[in-house]
Design a protein around this nucleic acid. Sequence first.
DNA 1: TTTATTTATCGTAATATTACTATATATTAA
DNA 2: TTAATATATAGTAATATTACGATAAATAAA
Lengths: 110, 110
Amino acid sequence: MGITRSDIYTDEQNRIATVAKAIGHPARVAILQHIIKTRSCICGDLVDEIGLAQPTISQHLKELKNIGIIKGNIEGTSVCYCIDDTTWKEYRDLLGLFFESHNPSDEDCC
Amino acid sequence: MGITRSDIYTDEQNRIATVAKAIGHPARVAILQHIIKTRSCICGDLVDEIGLAQPTISQHLKELKNIGIIKGNIEGTSVCYCIDDTTWKEYRDLLGLFFESHNPSDEDCC
DNA sequence: TTTATTTATCGTAATATTACTATATATTAA
DNA sequence: TTAATATATAGTAATATTACGATAAATAAA
């Protein structure tokens, strides 16, 4: 019925899915890559760089903030966004371990 | 307007987002983990294991097949699903490089 | 052939997402 | 104070996703 039944999954499964889902939009990938490239940036930079409307960028920034992978500090009239290094490491390892849990060098089955 | 404007992003951004989006649901994470654990399984096993209706599992399997991360071989009346090792490696590296593109040991900015 | 088994597809309702315009909010500059 | 600048929020339309029941399709067993 359109609602994800997160109660029937393990915490790990929900966490992996939540992180992957947040990265699962090209605008958010582009935002993260631009922040990484420039070390930090403000919302307006991303609007110019990516070409979406300002409220749309703001909405994507909010989703990235919700999972804690970026943080924003108010600097005068603008907001400086950057990667939250602790969370970044946590998610890098979470997805890294997920992908390492299968060894692709094993023989194929079917 | 609800439609993702994939034309304004790089191929890499779209590919990262597509893979992440496919993994971005706990049922699909659970499916992948169960296939990994049992080396291969059939749709019915996943229905029992996860507890979603059979058409729902079938729908999630289809999405995973669409990005090529799993493959299914018909065996009599059932279908044997397993990981596609070549695609698995490709996506592992794609997301791995994405996460490695930021070095979290650098000094925080804001 | 008939029946059972297994999976896929169709149709659909509930919900979520994406993008926009308009506007509110908050700080800085004049 | 007023105007300018930057971001967030509200509201909304279009689209996508998720889950289900019903049913089709395809093979195996009786």
